[in-house]
Amino acid sequence: MSALDDNAKEIAEDAGGEEIATSSREINTKEQDNGAGGPIILFFIIGLFASLILGWVIFPKLLYSKKKQPIDFNHVLHVAEVEDGCESCHFFREDGTYSGVPKLEQCIDCHDEIQGISHDEIKFVEKYVSKGREVPWLIYSRQPDCVFFSHAAHVKAAKIDCVTCHGHIGESENLKIYEESRITGYSRDIWGKSIGGFKKNTWDRMKMDDCAECHRKNTANISRTGVKTPTNRLIGHIIDLVSPGTSVSNKGGSVQTERDACFVCHK
């Protein structure tokens, strides 16, 4: 027994020794894995968050320069004074074109003398009215030159409210800071305040997709394939594949150019 036992013990010891050796190797490897795996994930997360912060927070700050309007204009005050609402100052000319931002000519009737004591009013009269210089207003809704937009078609013919595109600017007491893209020179209001491009209201953005959204819904002759933004072009293609021949033909189009599709809005 003793001899057998000894033998068995030896075997057991040997085996145990081996076992121990194996497990200790495993432990060593595990230890090594644990030591590098943490930082890799950490770095991934650091990279992820850093770029998310860069993209969502820092990038818009770098992209847009902030400019103050030359005069802080109070819409509420003026809307109360006039009879025709927005159109009192932002009117249509006799030939149907839209006047846009008022010129001195419209202001001068009341403002040839200083009205009230506000700093901006004094600045307006002294710097601009008395010198006959136009105020270099910064226009939030200015579109690139390649876009042809007719106010008459939208406001007069389609009876769209100013608020639909411009929001409640008529109810503001101050003009907000004008944020200008350093790359394009256009206002942040075109892309929208949300850098991610999310919108809650119709007036939050003024990109081509926003025009197309309404045109798709409300115009018969310019339907899905009429206004080809990247998104609706894709939709159009899918529809054509699924049920060919159902896309609406491009009748009508622009009154000015008598052309269709892109040329309704693009020169």
């Binding site: 890799i40 990279g47 992820l48 968050f49 998310l52 993209g55």
Partner: peptide, 27 residues
């Protein structure tokens, strides 16, 4: 903690993923 090539690559991949999820490239 040792910062090696792997962690740098991991940082870049994380950065790439984050950038793609941010509006930066599209804007």
């Amino acid at each position: 903690m040792k910062i090696d090539r792997r962690s740098f690559l991991s940082f870049l991949i994380g950065g790439g993923a984050g950038t793609a999820l941010s509006p930066l490239p599209w804007k």
